[in-house]
């Protein structure tokens, strides 16, 4: 049994290099175990790479690298092994990935879907707080976020494309991503949750409270898209219980209120328009 240990940063590139070598040497997927550094799944350490001469060329369909990249970001047990098994199987069945009825393909697609969702939620729910020091020529922002999977390197290009004219840091429990003067760098460092806040949050909370329509309360729909686990890092989420509790009474008020007389200026404005029309 071979054991391959992958690094926390550059995971996919490392996986690809090792997987390519193993597959070319014809190593069967059941003969390799993959693990993340720090996760002591196997009692054996990383074993030496195989030394047999390459026996065959490996080609994969276009869609595979992207899928494998997502599998390598997953914390789901066996995701690295599954990526390797697919690589081996693709050699005999190049059309394999288009068959969603195949259990390996199905599981891989399901894992990939979780990764895409995790990335999507990170794009949505990262909140930057301003920390620009006096005299700085670029504005500086910082965010704390807790993704489910190891997606920091996959997501960084999105934030670089979007926030190109400011410097920012996104800190997760395992990795800090820094965008400084236009270049991204990563550091694998364990960090405890940070409490952050920003003055503009008060305006954002005002907006959140007022864009809500109490006559259309749909708490389940909200929670399925914005699960509670994200709430502690969202400045607006603290308002939710109060908004829900008051909704019914507010609608009742609207219904109960008798129609009022129009303000005086209404008649003037409407008169003027009628004159214009004639």
């Amino acid at each position: 049994m071979q054991v391959v240990t992958l690094p926390r940063l550059g995971t996919f590139d490392a996986w690809r290099d090792r997987a390519r070598g193993l597959a070319r040497a014809g190593v069967c997927d059941t003969a390799v175990t993959w693990q993340m550094e720090g996760d002591a799944v196997s009692l054996f350490g990383d074993t030496a790479p195989v030394s047999e001469p390459p026996l065959r060329d490996i080609t994969v369909p276009k869609a595979f690298p992207a899928l494998a990249k997502q599998l390598c970001a997953s914390r789901a047990p066996g995701a690295f092994d599954l990526a390797y098994r697919l690589l081996v199987r693709l050699n005999d069945r190049p059309g394999l990935l288009s068959n969603r009825a195949d259990p390996d393909v199905d599981r891989a697609e399901k894992i990939a879907k979780h990764i895409r969702r995790d990335m999507h939620k990170m794009k949505a729910f990262v909140r930057f707080r301003e920390v620009t020091p006096q005299g700085a020529n670029r504005r500086q922002f910082i965010s704390w976020f807790e993704p489910d999977h190891r997606i920091e390197e996959l997501i960084a290009p999105f934030f670089s494309r979007r926030f190109g004219d400011m410097d920012w840091i996104i800190v997760t429990p395992e990795v800090s991503t820094r965008f400084d003067g236009g270049t991204v760098s990563f550091e694998a460092v364990k960090t405890e949750r940070m409490e952050l806040s920003d003055e503009t949050e008060e305006l954002w909370r005002t907006y959140y409270a007022n864009i809500f329509n109490p006559a259309r309360l749909k708490v389940k729909a909200m929670q399925s898209e914005m699960p509670k686990k994200y709430w502690k890092n969202l400045p607006e989420a603290a308002l939710i219980p109060g908004l829900i509790a008051d909704a019914e009474a507010r609608v009742h008020e609207m219904r109960k209120a008798a129609p009022t007389l129009p303000p005086l200026r209404a008649a003037k404005v409407l008169n003027r328009q009628n004159k214009d029309d004639n």
Partner: peptide, 22 residues
């Protein structure tokens, strides 16, 4: 990414929050 402006758009939009009306 050129550092001269703010913002990006790429195909699908993003919902940054959900109100209790879903």
């Amino acid at each position: 990414a050129d550092g001269k402006g703010l913002g990006s758009t790429e195909g699908s939009g993003i919902c940054h929050a959900y109100a209790p009306d879903g």
